[in-house]
Design a protein around this nucleic acid. Structure first.
Ligand code: ZN
Ligand code: ZN
Ligand code: ZN
Ligand code: ZN
Lengths: 436, 436
DNA sequence: CATGGTCATTGTGACCTC
DNA sequence: CGAGGTCACAATGACCAT
C-alpha cells in the first residue's frame, strides 16, 4: 500500500494523495479499504512472505562472500615427513588444503558448511551444522559456565569465518547463538532413540534475549529493506513524469536514493500510527511483547514492533548507532509539525530528486530531470500556500524542506549500519538488476 | 580567521561578510590583510599550536578511559601454593593484581603506562614506553618478517587495552606502528654507548605509509575538531543576536551543531582554494607530498593537505566511511553552484539554527530562538533575490537550502567516525565545559 | 637499561572413544 | 551419528641472561 500509486497524471496523483491522506493502517490491523487497487506492501500490510529467510539462512547469506582460498595443495605430507612429530592433528596453517574435498563441491555454496564460520562441517553439533572447531568452542563455552564473559574489541560486528574466527570470541559465540546452537541440557546417558532434533532455524526469543545488542532495529531495517525494494521501484514508476526519464536515470535515482526513501516511508508510516507516541509502549510487559512478536514474526515496517523490540532487548548502544532513538526523535519532530500525509508524499518526491551535482551530471537527460524537480518543488510550495497565509506558507515550506536534513541524517546512519551487515551493497545491485 | 566576526549588529555583520567575501587564503600561504582585527584560526591560518598534541599523546589521550579494574588483591600466592607448579610466570588471569603498584599512582594517568595498551610499562622498548607483552608482540612481528599479515575481523578500529589486546593482532600491530615503535635494524653486537634514542613521538611518514587505511581523513578531522572548537565558540558569540540567547541555549546549540559547523567550514574553505578542484593533486609526486607535510605537520583545516594525504596513503576504504571522497563530491557540488563566501556565511547560520523539535523544546527561550532563526532565513532569501530575478532567486534559495542535506550527511558520517575514535563525546563535553 | 631468548599457561581443533 | 575427552600446536607474556 505504501508505495502504491497507480498510473495517472500529476494532478490526479496529488488528488489521490489528498484523498488517501487520512487512511491509516497498523501492522497487525486489518486493511479496511478493499476497493482501491492496492498492491500490498511490507511497509505495513505484510503479505505472503518467503519464509525461507529465517535467521540462520539470513546470516548464512550475509556471510557468503567468496572467501579467497587459493590453497597451494601441497606440503601437507611434507611437513609431517620432514619433522616426524609424534602427533600433529590440528590444522592452524591458514593455508590448509583439507576442505576442498566435500563431494557436493561449491554448487549452492550452502550445504555441508559450518553455519558459523563457513568452514567445512563435520556434522550436526548442538543442533546446528558446524565444524569441529566451532563445536569445540561452543563446548568449552558451556563448560566454563556463566562466569566467563567475552568482550569484543570492536563493535560486536566482527566477521566470523575460517581465518578470522579465532580473533573475537565474543562475536563467535554470538554467531553460535544466532544460528541456534543450544546445550539441550546435559546429554542423557544412553538413549539410542529420539535424540537431538534439528534446531528449528528460526529466531528463538529466549536465546535471542541473551545476546547483548546490535541485532535489533538495524537488523530488522536491513531485512525490511530487502523486501521493500521492489515496492519502492514500483511506486517510483507510477510517479507522473518519472517514466519519461531515461531508464538509466531512473535506475540511478532509485539506486542512490532508496535508503533515504525507505527511511522517510517508515517515518511517515509511524507518524500515522495513533499509538506511536514515543515511550508509550515501553511500559508493556514482556509477555505482551512476546505475543505481538509471535503473532507476526516475519517482517513489519511499522516502528511499533521495533519499539517493543528495543524496549525489551536493546540495552544501551554504541554512540551514534542507535537507530531507534534517532528515529523516535524525528517522528516526534514531524508530529510536532502536524504534518499531513499529502505533505509527506510530496516530501518524498523532493527527496527523490534532491541529488548533488556530481550525480546530476551523470544523468543522461539533465533537462528533463530539472523540470521534474522544479515541478515537485512548485507543488510543495502551492500546498503550503493554499493552507495558510502567504508568509505562513513560506515558513512552513521552509520547515518542511529543512526537515529533510533529518531524514538524510537517518539515511546516512542506516547506510553505515548496512555496510557493516556484510554485502548489502552487492545485494542491492543484484536486486536492482533483477527487477529492472 | 574563519570563525572571526567582531562585535557588530546584524547589518554591519552582513556588510562585513560581503566585503570579506573575495578574500582567500591558503593553508601555507601568507595572511595578506593585516589591518583587520583578525583572530587567527586553525582552519586555514595555523597560528601557534600546542605541539604537545602529537601522535603518541593523542592516542594515549583517546584511550585513557577509566578502565574498571577492581582487582580482589588476593589469591596471587594462593594459586602458587595450592598447585606447586614448577613455574608460573605469565599473568593471563584477567583480574590481575600486579599493576596498582606504580609509585606515581593515577595522578596524570599518563606516565609509566604502555603507550599501546595502557598496561603498566616496563621501560622503553623499540623506542616507546611499552609493557612486556607489547614488547614481545612487536619482537615476534619483526622476527616473523614480512611474510605474515594479520587481518582484522572488524574495521581496523579495534580497541587495544589490557584485556582486549589479544583479540586483534592486526590492530595491535597498527597501534604499535602508530605510537612509533621501530626495529632500528638488528641490534648492534655490543656497543655500550649511544644506543637507542627515544623515538621522536611524531608521525613518521615511512612507518605510517606501511599502515593500511583508516587513519587518514577521519583522524585528521577528529584532531582538527579538537583544536577548532574554541574558535567556533568565539565565532558564534559574535553573531549578532546570538549572545542575547540564554547561556544554556548557546551551549546546547553549539554542542549539538559543532560537528556540522566544522564540516561546513572545511567545505567552504576548500571551495575557496583555487587549486581545490578534485583529482588535481592526485598526480603530485610523493616527494612533493612529503615536502608539504613536513612544512606544517601540526594541523591544517584546508582539504588540500587531506587530499594529498589520501592520494598517497589511502587505499580503498570501507563502504560509506570514506570521508574524503564524500567531501570532494560536496565541494564539487558547491563549486558548480558557484557559491559565494557570503552565501556560505549565511548558510552557516541557517545550519546552526536548524534543530529538530525535541531539541527546540529543550531550549529555555524558544521565542527568541525562533526570531533569530527566521531572521537568518530572511537574510538568505534577500541575498538570493537581490542577485537575480524573483523566480531565479527562489530557485537559488531552494538549491542552497537543499544543499544543507549534503552537509548534514557529512556531519553524520563524521560523527560515526569520531564515535569510533574512542571517547570523542566525553572529550567534547570537557572541552565545552572548560570554555564556557 | 634495552634486547633477545625461555617456557609455563592458555586457547584451539583434529581425532578418538563411547 | 554426536557428545565429550584428548593433546599437539600456536600465541602470549613474565622473567632472565647478556
Ligand atoms: Zn565453524
Ligand atoms: Zn567482535
Ligand atoms: Zn602494552
Ligand atoms: Zn582489529
Amino acid at each position: 500500500m505504501f508505495w502504491n500509486s497507480s498510473n495517472m497524471n500529476w494532478h490526479q496523483y496529488t488528488a489521490m494523495v489528498n484523498s488517501v491522506a487520512p487512511f491509516h493502517h497498523l501492522s497487525n490491523g486489518v486493511l479496511l479499504n478493499t476497493s482501491s487497487p492496492v498492491k500490498s506492501s511490507l511497509l505495513g500490510d505484510l503479505p505472503r512472505l518467503p519464509t525461507a529467510l529465517c535467521a540462520s539462512n539470513y546470516f548464512q547469506y550475509l556471510q557468503s562472500k567468496p572467501v579467497k582460498e587459493f590453497q597451494p595443495t601441497i606440503l601437507r605430507q611434507q611437513s609431517s615427513t620432514t619433522t616426524p612429530l609424534p602427533y600433529d592433528r590440528r590444522d592452524l596453517s591458514l593455508s590448509s588444503t583439507a576442505n576442498s574435498t566435500t563431494y557436493s563441491q561449491n554448487l549452492p555454496v550452502s550445504r555441508q558448511q559450518c553455519q558459523v564460520c563457513r568452514d567445512s562441517a563435520s556434522g550436526v553439533h548442538y543442533g546446528v551444522q558446524t565444524c569441529e572447531g566451532c563445536k569445540s568452542f561452543f563446548k568449552r563455552s558451556l563448560q566454563a559456565g556463566k562466569g566467563q564473559t567475552f568482550v569484543c574489541a570492536a563493535d560486536n560486528k566482527c566477521q566470523v569465518d575460517k581465518r578470522l574466527r579465532r580473533n573475537c570470541a565474543a562475536c563467535r559465540l554470538r554467531v553460535c547463538h544466532m544460528v541456534g546452537m543450544k546445550s539441550n541440557g546435559v546429554r542423557k546417558t544412553k538413549v539410542g532413540k529420539t535424540r537431538y532434533i534439528r534446531a528449528k532455524n528460526v529466531f528463538d526469543l529466549e536465546e535471542y534475549r541473551k545476546l547483548d545488542s546490535v541485532y535489533n532495529t538495524e537488523t530488522v531495517l536491513c531485512r525490511l529493506f530487502q523486501n521493500e525494494i521492489p515496492n519502492m521501484i514500483e511506486w517510483a514508476k507510477n510517479i507522473p513524469g518519472y517514466k519519461d526519464l531515461p531508464l538509466e536515470d531512473q535506475v540511478t535515482l532509485t539506486r542512490t536514493k532508496c535508503l533515504d526513501m525507505l527511511v522517510i516511508s517508515v517515518i511517515s508510516q509511524s507518524c500515522n500510527l495513533e499509538n506511536a507516541q514515543p515511550a508509550v509502549s515501553f511500559s508493556l510487559s514482556n509477555q505482551k511483547y512476546e505475543e505481538l512478536l509471535a503473532h507476526n514474526e516475519s517482517s513489519s515496517g511499522s516502528l511499533i514492533k521495533e519499539k517493543l523490540h528495543s524496549a525489551v532487548i536493546n540495552p544501551l548502544k554504541a554512540y551514534g548507532t542507535d537507530m531507534f532513538c534517532n528515529m523516535l526523535k524525528v517522528i516526534s519532530h514531524y508530529k510536532s509539525l502536524n504534518i499531513s500525509q499529502t505533505e509527506f508524499e510530496v516530501l518524498k518526491l523532493l527527496l527523490l530528486t534532491n541529488v548533488d551535482n556530481s550525480l546530476k551530471q551523470s544523468l543522461t537527460n539533465t533537462e528533463l530531470f530539472s523540470n521534474l524537480k522544479s515541478q515537485f518543488r512548485e507543488s510543495l510550495l502551492n500546498l503550503c500556500s493554499s493552507k495558510d497565509s502567504r508568509s505562513q506558507g513560506q515558513s512552513r515550506y521552509d520547515d518542511l524542506v529543512m526537515s529533510l536534513t533529518l531524514i538524510k541524517d537517518l539515511g546516512t546512519r542506516l547506510e553505515a549500519c548496512m555496510s557493516q551487515q556484510a554485502e548489502a551493497s552487492s545485494m542491492l545491485t543484484n536486486l536492482l538488476k533483477t527487477i529492472l
